[in-house]
Design a protein around this nucleic acid. Structure first.
Lengths: 309, 309
DNA sequence: TTGTATGCGTTATCAT
DNA sequence: ATGATAACGCATACAA
């Protein structure tokens, strides 16, 4: 009777009197449903696994907090497992996934960076990019690529430098956009990991150019901030001589001078969508693949200005 | 027999042949012990709860990753719960703790910021400061306070400004140290939350002073970086005119120019100690209170220089 | 060295 | 509307 009342509440066919008695006892005794017993009986843990790279980048923390909130609304808890992204990346990733199975998680959320994903008997939802064969939630980098070039062009910029991991899908879109505007020839692409150090390298290269670009689009706010600092050191004025655009919308973007113009991945929306997609997949395993692209937010600040010819 | 062999391995008194057969079957069937069933039977979840403030600060992520690794070495998993640090702080914190009990966590790790901690039937280990009545692991802020003033004094600094949350224990130590060196009279203390914005305020105040301090000690790297930027804007040269010292050793400290001299809380050590203390308390509930202060690391970089009189 | 039986707390089914 | 009972998978005490 207790179990029945607790589950059905007012809706079940139980006597009001019985209900009250039960609820009072629950209150008095501080009864809480035992998680392990329920999981054992139902075969469902109500836990979702989140597999993340073990990198010291604060933006992951933002995502985690949003995920916690989004999944809590569906009554799910999250369980994390970090993998090393160094040499033994593949093995470490496999281990992380294994730890998940041992915990009876009902689904796994992971960035889709791995080349060969281990087979899983539970749903795997990819976060960050669109990967064939998996449910995915990701920032719409193609739209971003077009948008940023469009903004630059419409504000008079013609010589644009782009620095980041060029294989990333955003850069194909940028090239395409530049091509349409007829400014691809004058563009520079700096290929390298998105580190503060590389931003310094980029800025120094720019300083040595005969015909400098009027704008730089960096792969991350980390690069952008580092780049702005190096520009200071080199005596290049931002944004008067060169506009800088970042990507991530980290807090530091508001600490620098000039404050950083950037794009926001909207982790809040992304987390909500991840939760929605995950729950949908769990409820209905046969639904066709879900793929959700999220439009990024342009954050207008001071490191980007229009130029006049 | 299976259960016995799995638990005792080579050490139990089981026939080698039986062992092999069992291990082979485990391999073939991909058997994994069911987490929920074990937790139900033993009454132990092998999960530790971690309660954290819901703030968008990257250093928490560093701590989380170190904790994951440290506890994994003891066979524990971590379960997180975030509380809002706004108006309804107290209620939100209580909720977070409740969620932990429902998960059957064996102990809880939390920053000891709450005024009144809810009573818990499980061990609570405080992270970040030394709190009476609880096992604690924290950076030794007193040693830090003395160390930073000593370094400044020995490098010729006499007029020092300190900006942060003055009730924090580090500042008592600083005052004590300044008193010993006879420079307390010339010191300034700026009391306020450790925000980038406040660092700007501080720098502007400094700019307006007749007799400017020769060094600023900020409460956090966030403040320090923001302060360095504002110094740029105000035309104050760092470190020639003013030395800047941070606290946290965030990655951004290496992106700025000059690179930030700071102190590192050593999250790796802290996490290891937290795991050690937690496991110790669980194994032996009657051991006297454990209190572990961790010495911070001085990170020498370029934002701090000696001055000559 | 191995086999058997019990119960952890829950939910679901069936009987009343 | 309520009561009785089985079963989830495991660890363990005890018997053999």
């Amino acid at each position: 009777m207790v179990s029945y009342v607790l589950r059905t509440g007012e809706k079940g066919s139980s006597a009001p009197n019985t209900r009250e008695q039960i609820m009072r006892a629950v209150e008095e005794l501080g009864y809480k449903t035992d998680f392990a017993a329920r999981a054992l009986r139902t075969g469902k843990s109500r836990i979702i696994g989140v597999v993340l790279p073990r990198i010291n980048q604060g933006y992951l923390h933002s995502l985690v907090m949003e995920l916690e909130e989004a999944f809590r609304n569906y009554g799910y808890s999250l369980f994390y497992s970090y993998f090393h992204s160094g040499d033994e990346r593949h093995k470490s990733f496999g281990d992380a996934m294994d730890r998940m199975s041992a915990m009876n998680v009902e689904a796994i959320i992971t960035p889709g960076l791995q080349d060969n994903m281990p087979d899983m008997s539970i749903p795997v939802i990819i976060w960050g990019n669109d990967r064939k064969g998996y449910d995915c939630v990701y920032p719409d980098k193609t739209a971003f690529g077009f948008d940023v070039i469009k903004r630059l062009y419409e504000n008079g910029h013609r010589r644009i430098l782009v620095a980041g991991i060029i294989e990333d899908s955003r850069y194909a879109a940028m090239k395409e956009a530049m091509c349409r505007y007829g400014i691809l020839e004058q563009a520079h692409f700096f290929d390298g990991v998105a580190s503060a150090k590389n931003a310094v390298v980029v800025m120094r290269e720019i300083a040595g150019m005969e015909l400098r670009p009027t704008a730089v689009v960096f792969h991350s706010d980390e690069m952008a901030v580092s780049g702005i600092f190096e520009a200071y050191r080199l005596g290049i004025k931002v944004p008067q001589e060169i506009s800088v655009i970042g990507y991530d919308n980290l807090p530091i973007g508001t600490w620098v001078a000039p404050m950083l113009t950037t794009y926001d991945q909207r982790f809040d929306v992304m987390a909500k969508e991840l939760a929605r997609v995950t729950v949908c997949r769990l409820k209905n395993p046969d639904v066709p693949r879900l793929s959700v692209g999220i439009e990024m937010n342009y954050i207008e600040r001071k490191s980007f200005i229009a130029i006049t010819h």
